[in-house]
Design a protein around this nucleic acid. Sequence first.
RNA 1: AGCGGGGUAGGGUAGCCUGGAAAUCCCGACGGGCUCAUAACCCGUAGAUCAGUGGUUCAAAUCCACUCCCCGCUACCA
Length: 738
Amino acid sequence: MNLMERILVCVAWPYADGPVHLGHIMGAYLPADIFRRFNKMMGNEVLMVSGSDEHGTPITIQAEKENVHPSVISEKYHRINEEIFRRMFIDFDIYSRTSSEKHKKVVRDFLIQLNENGYIYEGTMISPYCPRCKRFLPDRYVEGTCPHCGYPKARGDQCDNCGRTLDPQELINPHCRICGTTPEFRETRHLFFRLSKLENGLREWVRSNTHWRINVKNYTERFIEGGLKDRPITRDIEWGIDVPFPGYENKRIYVWFEAVIGYLSATIAYSEMINNEKLWETYWKDENSKHYYFIGKDNIPFHTIIWPGMLMAHGDLNLPYDVPANEYLILKGMKFSKSAAHGIFMPEMLEKYDPDMIRFYSSMNMPENHDTEFSWNDFYSIINTELIDKYGNFINRVLKFVHNRYGSVPPALEFDDEDYNAIKNITRTGEEMAMYLSKVEIKNAIKSFMNLVSYGNMYFDRAAPWDLCRKDEKKCQTKLHISLMLVKALSIYGYPFIPETSRRVWRMLGYIDPIEKYGWKEAINPMEPYSIGEPSILFKKLEIKEEYEWNRLDIRVGRIIEVNDHPNAERLYLLRIKIGNEFRNIVAGLKAHYRPEELLNRNILILYNLEEAKIRDYVSQGMLLAADDGKNVSILVPEEAEDGERILFNNSETNPERKISIKEFQKIRIEIGKIMGIEEDNVIVQGKMLYKIKNEMVKGKTEGNIVLAFSNNKPFVMHTKNGLVRPIRDVEPGAKIR
RNA sequence: AGCGGGGUAGGGUAGCCUGGAAAUCCCGACGGGCUCAUAACCCGUAGAUCAGUGGUUCAAAUCCACUCCCCGCUACCA
């Protein structure tokens, strides 16, 4: 533990097709940076590398859409992400990119080496070729029926239903996802990586890594038990790295093979950048160097099997020491996703909040063991109470008191038991945090940190210097000295999590040399007699603004003017709807519940800002709202309203800026309530539970079913200008709207 | 409906893999203290049949089986 260690911190390479979001930050980049800073403070030699992953089909697709060269896309997001990391104080020693010449060269050399070692062979592959699109299709462009589970929409690379990885040829009834044509399976030559040969070696190596997180280890072992297959490492596409063998001029190296080599190429590039060209070898060849890979859970097999396999095949290079993969961040019940534009994206987050606030919250809530829900309430609450009230206020009250009373650090003269205890606490916290952080247990570490904050507040309270200083000057000075030591310790111990704040506190304590120069161990040393200036407030409290969830909904009254059967779906109708001056087509799954004449000319409710969707070949421009209690289904109708009118909540019109996805809509709780009785100014409503609602919300109505939309679990009644919204048939109270 | 993940005080969580006395922490509620501090801080109290049932065991929140409920992905939900 006390010997200096050399650590390479490898962080997943973000795919350059969009800005990173909070899930990426919490899952990989922040823990990596915390780990890096901690190790620096321990005096270890640390290097942190990452970069943009720029090749591959998704970027090509994006480029085709925008009608630009793929490099334009990757260049844009490379810059954006680099800037995000800089602002978040996630300080890579080098943030490289896979389009760099250095990377390309290292990749080619790597491939040549693997070939020399007998791990590469040429094989022919039967690949799907679409005669209509005139090209070989990437695996995920082919769809068909899964041979294992019979799922009809399995993709060529894997089946989403049973999770098995597939080859496009295995699919039953394959077709091109773009044009629907049945692809021909043509022969094409490709290079293969002999992963199968490494199966035993990998299995043993994985088994020997007893310090890995259980989920990582279990997952990896199960994956290996499934058998390791050789993998093609070239593809018939244009955007990518050239293959260094003749006959492969029109092919490129597969991204999965090439991007992981970035960890190595970036280290080499860094060595050259600082004119220390042999430096990379100390990291990659000296067996005492430890490599940590910070990634999300979707990346586990690549970093615990494939990349180690490639390294074994290459020989002479260090394998990963630990792969502390994190789980997903969930927003409103749905995982963050770049492609679905679902989540909190960093550019927007950084506009509003101090980076250290984001770092602090993220550390407290890191998805280390489970998928973790993000909510703004949680964010505000943790920032305001833990970071600002407990931590910020402690720093502030101590510094302000010392500043006002003495203006400099008072000497420690007389120690009592509690004072010794305080110093013991500082020491113990440092050891405990070091123990956690060296195992990359961020949440435990910051919890330990917060315990010291609480202790500090308690110590200061018990010491009561505002009183003591009048009675016993010497003792009071000691108490203040130790309080300042606590502040100092918090500055040092907090540094990995909230570096900028720690630096500010450090300067307030009078230190000139940077905190990094002192390191972890300095926390237990007494204070220097510096002068203490007027402390500045570390953070302003966040104002909590209430957001109504139903503000995302734009619901309008529509009149059904046509009802037709869906030609190839048993349960669907095609409806023509008039909404004021506008007409829309809606697909509705009501055939089992309503006859056409029951629907025709009815005023109903349309979710107006729902994203369009194709259902069985017909586009649905919105959704007809109906209540469903599991047995009965009822459409919802407005009382006394014209088509085109908007549905109101809490007497206000909603005005969402964006379209809403079906998933988001389903997250918003809307249910049927039955008016049970009246009690003074309130109405008692039975929904899924019993609610008390203000009388005016139901416009004086005293009976019947109503529709409740919830925000923060508080019910609001859906209504129109002149009346309420009601289900036309009787359904159970609590029935959901869909 | 198929697959995956869960159910621990009013809310949010820790603990579960590796069973062991009083189940962790934060918010909220209630009572008290303090007045240095960003209406912050400190102390105390109440509040949990650890989803249910059955089993294994000297001992179960923890292991096993079944049931119920929630969430996600998928789908002729829209």
